[in-house]
Amino acid sequence: MSEGGTARPVRPRPRLRTFGITAGLLAFTGFAAREVEFAVSTFWEAWNNPLWEKFWPVPWDWVLDRSNVLDPLVETFQIAILATIVGCGLALPISFAMSRLTAPNRPTYLVSRSVMNVVRAVPDLFWAKLLVTAVGIGAFAGTWALSVFSLAVMVKLFSETVDNADPRPLEAARATGSRHLPAIRTGVLPTVLPEYVAYALYVFELNIRASIVLGLVGAGGIGRVLEAQRQFFRFDRVLGMLIIVFVVVFVIEQVSVAIRKRLV
């Protein structure tokens, strides 16, 4: 133990690589901060900004009028519901094509996987804007955009579940001489179905949130009204709408989370 004599070690110097990477990240951060016009002063300037007064008082008469907020909000949810049904419906077969376990052959696996990666790399509202240009302004474009987005998210989540499913039932089904699809139907689907439903509900929650902002790019729903009022500088109405929207979204999410918890 205290045989003594052991010399104190020299404090190790940080390695050159560590130093280089740290310096590089700091430099990048500094540069990026300049590029985004970083200004701490915003925080107190914002505090004294006279525009804040435009957010108050909330015109509840206008906000609670059915046609102003409630109807577009209902439209928003209809977009979210349809998109969830279409997106998650399409995701079921595509996920099986995308999973190593259940893909019918290697080309299908590779093609579906890379296409889906690219689809997911395009941000959701880019899809919305593209589809608004293609099929015209309104909820219809929003539904399509959100369907594509749901599909991309769903296949990512669900194909991983299928990857991790127990391969033995599938093997057993194949051993009875079953063809590919019936083998998946009986050997894999039952084990992953609860996860599928849970993910679908999760995607529905995402869609509810995403559908609110769709209108900002002309794809229908409550966002359209939000955008219009913003352009008229009616921030009091904007605030009122947001309050309503988030109360409703919060309630829907709580219900969905409760259902998901019971499922899994």
Binding site: G4, T6, R8, P9
Partner: peptide, 15 residues
């Protein structure tokens, strides 16, 4: 701290 480590005989492990 170094002295305490010396007392328990593991000063060479300080870093």
């Amino acid at each position: 701290a170094m002295q305490a480590l010396e007392r328990v005989g593991i000063v060479e492990k300080a870093y």
